[in-house]
Design a protein around this nucleic acid. Sequence first.
RNA 1: GGGCCGGUAGCUCAGUUGGCAGAGCAUCUGACUUUUAAUCAGAUGGUCGUGGGUUCGAUUCCCCCCCGGCUCACCA
Length: 494
Amino acid sequence: MEELNELLQQRRAKVKSYQDAGVNPFANDFVVNHNAQQVLEAHTDDDKETLEEVEATYRIGGRIMARRDFGKAAFLQLQDGSGRIQVYVALNQVGEEAFENFKKLDIGDIIGVSGSPFRTKTDELSVRAAEIRLLTKSLLPLPEKWHGLTDVEIRYRQRYLDLIVNPDVRAVFRKRSQIVSLLREYMLASDYLEVETPMMHQIAGGATAKPFVTHHNTLKMDLFLRIAPELYLKRLVVGGFDRVFEINRNFRNEGISIQHNPEFTMMEFYRAYATYSDLMYFTEELICHLASKVCGSLVIPYGEKEVDLTPPWDRLTLKESIVKYGTADMPVLEDRDQSFAYAQTLGLALDSNIGHGKLLAEIFDEVVEPKLWQPTFITEYPTEISPLSRKNDQNPEVVDRFELFIVGRELANAFSELNNPLDQKERFLQQLEEKAAGDEEAHGMDEDYIRALEYGLPPTAGEGIGIDRLVMLLTNSASIRDVILFPQLRPEIS
RNA sequence: GGGCCGGUAGCUCAGUUGGCAGAGCAUCUGACUUUUAAUCAGAUGGUCGUGGGUUCGAUUCCCCCCCGGCUCACCA
């Protein structure tokens, strides 16, 4: 048996002492009929005298977060899923036996209380306990009441504890849930069909990223956790579902940072008979809808600054943005070798064979992306780095694609879909060449996807929105780990 | 993976120019029937992240490692 420190021994001893006294320390027979918020709301307008006349009995359940004792009476702070309420416990109200059991309760214990509302001397609406019972004995002490829990490692590893003691954290995850609900509502109202496509792929497609590999024993084959649902969703558009969306996890075997978690949530959606341009308007409306519902304003704080989401958002081509935020002129960017020379002046370490398109993307990442604080659509991405996007009719060097940047981060990526199977096959072949040349993230050939396109994908536009980053923006969170309940960490050392 | 910073009581943190390890809260004992970080009196609680090295002696100095944060690289 492991050695327990004093605090833990004391709590285990209390379990035994309750059992010896015939009290079940893990009871499940207390009926709760109200929560803290309901009780508080029911009597917000009742003053002290009015409340004396009120004959109501509430049965509430929750965790003891604080207690202040006075010998034969005490105040408790009871916390449940809705908030906190003060409970007053007095010997002459609950009786001697119950009061003895009450005295052994610890902060962290979960109790049931029945009683009536009243206001204290300081006018705080409270519940005067007629009955108070232990429902779940807590064996581990909670963090300190004043400073709470700040150690981020414990907060992430033991999120349950973080949620118990940090109301701000609870608020962020409630908002996350609200955002996802609103998104779903909005998409359904816009006539999109919600679907679920495979998480385990035989070919890791739809994005450029390193996949996680897993293995199916019976089929005796390796599978990839999906890096994107894109190719499956477009198969569904081929199948006749003109508007589809999926909100689900993607897995990418890349670095971890304040804006990257190995598994992250993406909403991807596809709309037939639309263009990437249509999606820019849709994206503005969608995100503004969410911001006004969740934040109550289109001007929202982020870090030390503000973000103004009021449409219309800035639109720049990739090259225009480099001219605006960098130090190169348009003619330099039009020329591959001059662009390369410019990139070198930025200190970028580049393969000397790098293509013009990749070069521009590298330059953009370096000089533009961090500066796009206010919402900005960047368009005219190089075809070279967009193997699934439709080439622009006027200039086949670029595709009909945009990415949305807010607070210096990519939030969404969208394009008119490449629906010409012959072109798509060529692009895949090009990707295979790059893979052979050592690009681990180059796209693999997906013959069945080509076959689907051969049956005919209507002209379609599609988009992916990073939900974690969207939640970060709308909850003013600095790290993706603050909006993912259980972020990935190394194993805990025992 | 590289750089920087951190890991001391259940929690939040001090501290030791190398010599028995400190506070507040929590906990325990006692007092108190209207508190709001309640108050008052007393008490308990530590392999100072792990493993080595130097030293009469290491939590402190040195080295390896582990875990975390930020950052760079990669990416969304």
